[in-house]
């Protein structure tokens, strides 16, 4: 609505375009097109973000904003062992705090799923039935993530789980355990699940980048005498490299938002003794489970955004 005011206010200023009646008509049209959508967008997306940004500097009584406390919430949050647990980090023992665990997830998940996605895109690129193969790998990405979490629970179950059965078959029976409930390894088990889902998405992005390469470039390289490895290194890779930035950043965004999988496996605690909690889980617990701590919830959610925002800006800059 401030937008409409703004546009109406500018109405007279556009004399250069000529007929002022034309401008008025244009301004009204703009308002009609923009205002309904942008209002909802403002109220339910931008507004709450601003609210959180402001609220993170205030003290809270449950859901009610109290007084300005400066960086108090921020300091408190970063000292909270649930977010960063320095002592356990030094001993490399879980729980290390949601922020650390979330970042560890990024470090493992993103490179592996990127490489797997690229590898599969290359593998499937010229096979017959590639559409079916790709759909099979991509299927996980269309399934509700909460189901993914439950499937992981099932896969890693000591009795009914196919993963443990696999261990028994290859003679590693001593490793059999309930993977999602063992504090020191559970996070890796869940990261593997995340990779399982995201590889399909990365493969899709790489596949479309590969199919956008003019086949005559590859043929030209063949005639020039390049073997499969040189063709990949000199032609294919440089041409799909820009997609890698997108793949990596989308991966980071996805992992920083991960919530459902952890919730399914470990509830709102984020596993036994919070051993694989992530930032999203901490926000939920702080905001909606007693004792309610809106200030901390807002700080943690902002941290999630701050980690991702520069990357998103980088993607935006690329275009």
């Amino acid at each position: 609505m401030s937008l409409r005011d703004h546009i109406d206010g500018l109405e007279g200023g556009h004399d250069s375009t000529g007929d002022p009646a034309f401008d008025r008509e244009k301004a009204i049209a703009l308002a009609v097109f923009l205002v309904p959508g942008m209002t909802l967008f403002g109220i339910f997306s931008v507004g709450p973000i601003v609210y959180s940004a402001v609220g993170s500097f205030f003290s809270w009584d449950a859901f009610t904003m109290q007084s300005f406390v400066g960086l108090d919430n921020w300091f408190r949050t970063f000292r909270d062992p649930l977010i960063v647990h320095w002592e356990n980090i030094r001993q490399y023992r879980f729980p290390m705090g949601a922020l650390t665990q979330n970042l560890l997830w990024v470090v493992l998940h993103v490179p592996i799923s990127t490489l797997l996605g690229l590898g599969m895109a290359l593998l499937f690129a010229d096979l017959r039935g590639r559409r079916i193969l790709r759909s099979m790998v991509f299927l996980g990405f269309t399934v509700p993530t909460i189901v993914i979490g439950l499937v992981l629970l099932f896969v890693y179950d000591p009795q009914a789980g196919v993963f443990n059965e696999l261990l028994r078959v290859v003679g590693q029976g001593q490793l059999v355990r309930n993977w999602t409930q063992s504090p020191q390894v559970a996070i890796y088990a869940l990261v593997a699940g995340g990779i399982w889902v995201q590889t399909g998405f990365n493969m899709l992005l790489y596949s479309s980048a590969l199919s956008a390469i003019d086949p005559s470039l590859i043929e030209s390289a063949k005639v020039d005498g390049a073997g499969p490895y040189r063709r990949f290194r000199d032609i294919i890779w440089p041409l799909v490299k820009p997609v890698t930035a997108v793949v990596v950043i989308m991966g980071i965004i996805w992992v920083m938002r991960v919530f459902d999988i952890v919730y399914a496996a470990g509830g709102t605690a984020g596993g036994p003794n919070h051993s694989y909690s992530v930032l999203g889980i901490e926000v939920y617990r702080a905001a909606f489970e007693p004792p309610i701590d809106y200030g901390k919830a807002m700080v943690v959610a902002l941290v999630q955004l701050l980690i991702v925002a520069p990357l998103a800006a980088y993607i935006a800059r690329m275009n």
Binding site: M38, F41, I43, F44, S45, V46, G47, P48, I49, V50, Y51, S52, G55, F63, I253, M256, R257, F259, L279, G280, V283, Y284, A287, F288, Y294, A297, M298, V300, A301, L302, Q304, L305, V308, A309, L311, A312, A313, A316
Partner: peptide
């Protein structure tokens, strides 16, 4: 500005809007 806000929201986690929307 609007464009920038859209990008910002796309990067934001859903948890960030939960508190504000809850109160709204």
């Amino acid at each position: 500005t609007l464009f920038f806000l859209i990008l910002l929201v796309m990067a934001a986690p859903p948890e960030l809007v939960a508190m504000g929307n809850y109160n709204t």
